[in-house]
């Protein structure tokens, strides 16, 4: 926090500045989760680790997919694939707001010239059975982050409470870099040997996925995959805790949670294909939620979830 930040020149320099900043605050620098998710919250480092009593501090970039937001790369602000920067600290430290403001300074926002505001925005994820209270953070009228104190995840009360920070990286970077269209944003340094823009990296994929998401994804296959992931998740968690091969107590929460994430993403794809009616929508969300609840219940039975032999 001590060095004066240099004005960032590219998308990646902002990501790197955030990484450095949160590493300096003592967070574990994790990597993106290797599955398709709708938001950084779905990473087990947030969803599962916000449960139970064990302390936790992690930060990571998470590629996120929202099929319905695809605009073939033409909309200046909307993408079906984008990056979130996620920080989760448990228990939430008393100076989390100050730490957060420090991160804005670290990416080159001159704090004395801007108007930063914490505006009420309660967070709720019906698919995760989770909610929290907090704000959207405004910088000169623009939402640059989401700031949440988790109260419940997977239907479980959070004790202690985690503080979660989510930065929409493209939007934040566009603001800091003064870019109007996301595709014009320099991805690496404009003076690099091979300068690349966001367009060079993602324009084609946005087109490909938009077409696939909206028109091509085979809904029958997806519907089947949804059912399979759901059944799979339940099956995994129904296994006895004691592994017959090793004789160890192994609850397979993460494999089960992978299936929950899968079901959630497939639901998003089905939604984008427009085959889910308003009433069915609620039912699907409810089904994903019951999976995440099962996973949450199972996680608090594990070591990482704060389970101990003596207490049990």
């Amino acid at each position: 926090m001590s060095q004066t930040p240099t004005k960032p020149r590219s998308f990646q320099s902002i990501i790197l500045a955030l990484q450095n900043y949160w590493a300096a605050q003592g967070c574990a620098m994790l990597q993106p989760y290797d599955m398709e998710v709708g938001a950084g919250t779905f990473h087990p480092a947030t969803t599962l680790r916000s449960l139970g009593t064990q302390p936790w501090a992690a930060a990571y970039v998470q590629p996120s997919r929202r099929p319905t937001d695809g605009r073939y790369g033409e909309n200046p602000n909307r993408l079906q694939h984008y990056y979130q920067y996620q920080v989760l600290i448990k228990p939430s430290p008393p100076n989390l707001q100050e730490l957060y403001l420090g991160s804005l300074a670290a990416i080159g926002i001159e704090m004395e010239l801007h108007d930063i505001r914490f505006v009420e925005d309660d967070w709720e994820s019906p698919t995760l059975g989770a909610w929290g209270l907090g704000w959207e953070v405004w910088c000169d009228g623009m939402e640059v982050s989401q700031f949440t104190y988790f109260q419940q995840v997977g239907g479980q009360d959070c004790h202690p409470v985690s503080g979660e920070l989510t930065y929409g990286l493209e939007r934040l970077a566009m603001y800091v870099l003064g870019v109007d269209h996301v595709m014009d944003m320099p991805f690496n340094d404009p003076d690099a040997l091979i300068p690349l823009t966001y367009r060079d990296v993602f324009k084609q994929t946005e087109e490909e996925y938009a077409r696939w998401n909206f028109d091509t994804a085979n809904t029958e296959v997806l519907l089947r995959q949804f059912e399979e992931a759901e059944a799979h998740c339940k099956m995994i968690l129904e296994q006895p805790h004691l592994d017959p091969k090793t004789g160890k107590r192994i609850i397979m929460v993460h494999p089960a949670y992978d299936q929950c994430i899968k079901a959630s993403h497939i639901f998003n794809l089905l939604d984008a294909r427009g085959v889910i009616s308003v009433t069915e929508r609620q039912a699907y969300i409810g089904r994903v939620r019951s999976l995440s609840k099962l996973c949450a219940d199972a996680f608090v039975q594990t070591d990482a979830g704060g389970w101990s032999e003596d207490a049990a």
């Binding site: 010239l113 801007h114 108007d115 910088c139 000169d140 009228g141 623009m142």
Partner: peptide, 28 residues
């Protein structure tokens, strides 16, 4: 009219420019 929560050395020029930009995106 927007209402900021502070004074600045540039008399709100940066804040106003930011707000105008956000508004343009919204109105677009």
């Amino acid at each position: 009219i927007t209402v900021a929560n502070r004074t600045t050395a540039d008399e709100g020029a940066t804040i106003l420019a930011g707000n105008e930009k956000v508004l343009s995106a919204r109105l677009a």
